[in-house]
Simulated assay, not measured.
Amino acid sequence: MSRPQDPPRPFISFGNPFRMILPKGSNLSPKLLNLLNSFENALAGRLKKLKPSVREDVLNLSWMRSAMESLCGIHTDIKTLITALELPVSDWDEKWLDVYLDNSVKLLDICNAFSSEISRLNQGHLYLQCALHNLGSASPKQFVRARSSLDGWRQHTSSKNPRLDNCFSIMDSLAQTLDLPKIKNSAKGKVLMGAMFGVKVVTLFVCSIFAAALSGSTKKLMDLHVPETCLWAEAFADVQTFVNTEIRIIYSSQRVTVVKELEAVDMGVKKLYSIVQDEVDVTVDPIEAELLQKSTSDLEMSARNYAQGLDLLAKEVDSFFQIVLTGRDALLSNLRIGGNISNPIKSNNIEGQTVR
């Protein structure tokens, strides 16, 4: 499963979004400024909580679940902001609608790619269960079967998921459109676009981490530069530097994966495989029997933690999918009622929403 280290990607820089959204000389009312500041401060708070307390937590499935929970919260926050702005969908500029609809359909496709990979990894757990079941007996025949199951696990986890490749191209297209449309005559629109910028950047950051973790490569690990005018810029730079640096260190050390639970299982499989490969008669060698029992017990525990972590992560990815989907559906429904919609962007992959 080892892969060569990918060269670091340069910072993805883009123009100051607030220079376009809030041009020089423009002022927001105290109410609108308070709404935007409250949203940005909340975003900064979520980012601070997202930074792991210790490097060992980058990346484990628990942290990945927390990252997805944060995304769910951030996307819920923007819905709350839109409601507070009292900006009817019928008043949305066509450019805003294009941004929202295009981004949402891309996020749905990214979720489908992640869900597909999590499901594939979960299926590999069956090989571990078979191996552990066969090791319940010390007969040579069962050793052969256990070895075959462990071989199946190794082949399964080292294979590639083509759906992730499509995910990479989608992320690249999102990164190329981080600059938001210029807002001329709508103060509420400026607040909306400013908040959407924050949502888009943080979403792309988390998705790039997931892509690196699930693909086994830092090729798509992004470094995004946020203008200092954003109240959440410092918190974002802090967590991005911390997490991305640690991921690159892990891969440069030739470790098989940044996902800690998967790494624990992989190490357990290697230890157990060396025992069953030698076909030692544990019925007459108490030392080997004790080693087999301990290795089997260790793998059983790490496999259980891995499977539970994947299940919880799958549920969070599904929750994020549903939040994006319901927000998109609500917008399209309002547009239809207002008679202001034609040929909405559609995902080619909505049917792939099932996580498990």
Rank of each mutant, 00 (worst) to 15 (best):
S149E: 14
P23H: 08
G216I: 08
W232G: 01
S302M: 05
F205E: 10
A213C: 07
E234N: 13
K271L: 06
A67H: 11
A330L: 08
F14Q: 08
N27P: 00
L192F: 15
L224R: 03
S186W: 03
E56K: 12
L121V: 09
L150M: 10
V324E: 01
C111Y: 04
S149D: 15
K294E: 09
L332Q: 06
W153D: 09
L325S: 14
R255M: 04
L164G: 01
N60D: 15
K31Q: 13
Q129H: 13
P344I: 11
Q176G: 10
G73A: 14
D266L: 09
R46P: 01
I170D: 11
Y273M: 11
C72A: 05
D298H: 05
T257I: 01
G216K: 13
Q240K: 07
R65E: 13
A235K: 02
M64P: 04
I250Q: 03
V202H: 03
S173F: 05
K24W: 10
N41E: 10
K49Y: 03
C111M: 12
S347F: 10
P10H: 02
N305Q: 14
Q129V: 15
L174R: 12
E246R: 15
K294D: 09
S217P: 10
R163Y: 13
E288C: 05
K294W: 02
A67C: 07
L22V: 06
E351W: 12
S139G: 02
S148N: 14
Q176S: 14
V282N: 12
D91M: 15
A131V: 08
L128C: 13
Q123F: 03
D223T: 06
S38H: 08
G194C: 10
S169L: 11
L50W: 06
E246I: 12
W63Q: 14
E228D: 15
R65K: 13
F321T: 07
S186R: 03
P140T: 09
C167L: 13
A175F: 06
S274Y: 03
S90K: 11
G194S: 14
S90E: 12
G124Y: 01
I287H: 10
G327C: 04
N343T: 13
R328L: 15
L50D: 02
F242P: 00
Y127L: 07
K294A: 00
P4I: 03
K141D: 08
R255S: 04
F39G: 00
D311N: 13
F197P: 05
M1L: 13
S2H: 09
F236H: 04
R255Y: 04
I341F: 11
V284L: 04
D278E: 15
S26K: 09
I118K: 01
K184Q: 02
L291Y: 11
I247A: 11
T257H: 07
K260T: 02
D311V: 15
F320R: 07
I323G: 01
E316M: 09
E316I: 05
